[in-house]
Design a protein around this nucleic acid. Structure first.
Lengths: 254, 254
DNA sequence: CGATAATTTGAATTAACTCAACTGTTGTGG
DNA sequence: CCACAACAGTTGAGTTAATTCAAATTATCG
């Protein structure tokens, strides 16, 4: 493996997890450097995909997990009538496809919201490696468990919150996720449409639009189309102090 | 290990996963019999817990996963104000505590809805064993992944369904889970209150009550307090043909 | 048996939805 | 490079599904 060429090629480029800024959010977290190297050797990096392209769709055979490296991805299902139901948004460092381990096939679409690079992790190899590296096995279990917790928080949000609280929670989640990735937590661009946000939060797109307007009127946000500036983070947090379960954490992610 | 006493004692009773009717729904599924035996040796069986007793609470240190053997458990969070938010119901063969792997502490309450026996799986031992038994590692990943899928279905249900569809979906999920466990899929007792069901489905308890009445009037159900008879399974299924995503599966469980 | 809790039913309220119209943005081809 | 089509977002008005509040009824348990 150490013999592999170091010539840069689009297909077979050597991925350097060790140098990746997302490593602490990702699978390598907590691993010894020689183990990180073994992990690197199974990672495939493909060409970035363009906005609108699918990474996988429902029914596709499950081969790999994917980690977003740059860009953003939405996962969603579709009704026979053609309506989309957004399941989640995935930012750099976040892992996709965990729901497919179960029955070896994907259950939803994964579509790039913008030009997006992903690291591909062939699952069989990953699983095999995990038996040899206990720390990797543990990290995989942790990532799955984090997804379970995040989704449980989402369920709680949908069950017990008003439209206002849902959007506040969504914006705070984004803010925190950007912060952890070294981006501004108060000034960012939304990769998704109002419709996507509405679908994700169980709201009509008109409701989302009205709430953005209201938040702006209240001085909480400045919104210009996809561009969001959080002007009063504390006020935003205040909006969901009430209905929040004691031990919940907001950030759904890595 | 074969030397272990066969004397029955309350504390140290030898658990026979191999003979357990739930084995195909549980961790042993797919394992070689000698591996099942190694698994059995780390399983602890404690005294059954009584209705209302807690298995764990938020903040508790995470030591073990639990599998319901008989009875039923609900998991829930609590707001500072004291309102319960039900996260899920767990029937025999279903696993509890997966959300706690993430940060080594439980994030919710787990309370027995009736007299309940659980198998306790000390997580460190389980993880250690999983590095030695690839099939066990795989099964653990599968169980986590199933939980992720089930929760994603729940999110979809809450986002896109009416009260009627939610209750229909809930009843069908119970029906299917009972069927798999060898119980009647059309005649069963609810272990939880109307309030619990409402909290789980994001509905007011009055709405749940009214829907039970309506379903009964429509000849779909016969309801007598906790006792439910499904008279027209097809009709019930019909209620959620519409808003259901293409590839969703209804059963949240094992 | 009596008290407390769970459930049912009714009536009024409301948060969010749907429908509809309009505005602004983006991308495309003549 | 502009015109136009297609799309995304905003705003308004009326509707509705589910809620809240209230009261009556029915279990459950010591």
């Amino acid at each position: 493996m150490g013999e592999k060429s170091k010539v840069v090629s689009i297909d077979g480029i050597k991925v350097a997890c060790a140098n990746c800024s997302l490593a602490t959010l990702c699978l390598p977290y907590g691993l010894e450097s020689q183990d990180v190297e073994r992990l690197e050797n199974i990672v495939k990096r493909n060409k970035p995909i363009q906005r609108g392209q699918l990474l996988y769709g429902p029914g596709d055979h499950f081969r790999s997990l994917y980690v977003v490296k740059t860009g953003a991805v939405k996962t969603f299902t579709q009704t026979p009538a053609g309506d989309e139901h957004v399941i989640g948004f995935h930012l750099p460092g976040e892992i996709l496809g965990l729901d497919a381990i179960q029955d070896n096939q994907h259950g939803c679409f994964a579509k790039a919201l913008e030009t997006t690079a992903v690291c591909e992790l062939p699952f069989e190899k990953l699983e095999h490696l995990a038996t040899a590296i206990p720390g990797l096995q543990h990290q995989m279990l942790r990532l799955l468990s984090r997804e379970v917790s995040a989704e449980a928080n989402m369920i709680s949000l949908l069950n017990n919150s008003t439209a206002e609280e849902r959007l506040a929670s969504f914006l705070l989640s984004l803010s925190e996720r950007f912060r952890r990735r070294g981006f501004s937590p108060t000034d960012f661009f939304l990769a998704m449409s109002r419709q996507d946000i509405g679908s994700y939060l169980g709201l009509a797109l008109e409701t989302v639009s009205r709430l953005f307007t209201r938040f702006q009127e209240q001085g909480i946000l400045e919104v210009d189309r996809k561009h969001v500036k959080i002007k009063d983070l504390e006020h935003l947090k205040q909006l969901l102090r009430h209905h929040t379960p004691c031990h919940a954490s907001l950030n759904r992610s890595s």
